[in-house]
């Protein structure tokens, strides 16, 4: 290559070298920007509508949400109405649901993960459990009505029937999340235990369960939050939409917060639609946020402990 040629190439290089004039960088950059814009619009849609809901509800609830509202029974007059019996009903139900679904859900998950032979039957059961998690809640209401009221002859609309029905509703979720938590326990920890001469039950009790408790708790709380907000199945099993006395025992009739919200939203009168309904919604939202917050806290604590 002679000197002139080299010089010419150097000249060319000065222009094109590292400039994006002649390739696709520019157009790809524009495409990237468009994609980013779509992402931002998507997230804004969610955030803005949620913000609108919250602002709207909180604004309406303002002035209505006070101690008297929390501690009073429902009333014909919006200004006197409260949610105390429903709050107690929801609390009672959730405690029972937790009591029922924890052993049933964790027991099922432990069996599936630790004991069940890995065959098609196990797969079949697992697929069905996952599908059950997606079945509309009204169907669980029908099941509860058929199973507990018609077949087992329990009184409709009681705490017990409500709790059993909601247990059915969240059990698939509890099972699946518990299974995930159990699966996340490293094989090496199981081997360490077995290698030290422990029985399978000892290994499950002292290694698998303690290590999966945070995951199980997180899933459990989130499932209970779902149960807390559930309305349709409770209507189906004949729970009252509004009630004046707090439940005393598992055979009491009850109503729950979402049911009362449903009832009030249909009442005539500004005080109900734009007063006590949003106030009750705020109470329900706050409870759900606390539950979700607890789940996040447990998960966070756990991941920090791991390191």
């Amino acid at each position: 290559m002679n000197q002139a040629k080299l010089e010419k190439r150097a000249m060319l290089n000065q222009e094109s070298f590292l400039s994006s004039k002649n390739d696709n960088i520019k157009s790809e950059w524009i495409k990237g920007r468009i994609f980013l814009l779509i992402c931002i619009v998507s997230i804004l849609f969610g955030i803005l509508s949620l913000a609108a809901l919250l602002i709207y509800v909180f604004w309406d609830a303002l002035g209505w949400l006070n101690w008297q509202f929390i501690t009073s029974t429902p009333s014909r007059f919006a200004s006197k109405a409260g949610i105390f019996p429903m709050l107690m009903g929801s609390g009672f139900i959730i405690m029972l649901v937790a009591l029922f679904s924890l052993p049933l859900g964790v027991g099922t998950a432990v069996y599936l993960e630790e004991y069940a032979p890995k065959n098609l039957f196990k797969k079949f059961i697992e697929i069905n459990i996952s599908n059950l998690a997606g079945v509309p809640s009204i169907v669980y209401g029908l099941l509860g009505l058929g199973l507990f009221v018609s077949f087992l002859d329990l009184t409709h609309g009681t705490i017990l029937v409500g709790a059993l029905t909601l247990t059915l509703r969240i059990l698939p979720v509890v099972i699946v999340t518990s299974q995930e938590a159990i699966k996340a326990v490293p094989v090496s920890h199981r081997r360490a235990s077995i290698g030290l001469g422990t029985t399978k039950w000892q290994m499950i009790r002292s290694v698998v369960l303690p290590e999966s408790v945070p995951g199980i708790m997180t899933g459990m709380i989130l499932a209970l939050a779902v149960a807390m907000g559930e309305t349709a199945p409770l209507i189906m099993i004949g729970a009252a939409t509004s009630i004046f006395t707090a439940p005393r025992n598992i055979h009491s009739s009850f109503s729950s917060l979402p049911l009362q919200i449903f009832a009030w939203s249909d009442f005539p009168g500004e005080g109900f639609r734009h007063g006590v309904t949003p106030a009750a919604i705020v109470v329900l939202l706050v409870i759900l946020m606390i539950m979700n917050g607890a789940a996040i806290y447990i998960r966070h604590r756990f991941s920090r402990d791991k390191n």
Binding site: P186, A192, G195
Partner: peptide, 19 residues
């Protein structure tokens, strides 16, 4: 189980329990 109490094992990767 009894056999493994007599014949212990140490694994390739350290696998202490998270205790």
């Amino acid at each position: 189980v009894k056999l493994r109490r007599k014949i212990g094992m140490v694994f390739q990767q350290p696998n202490p329990f998270p205790k």
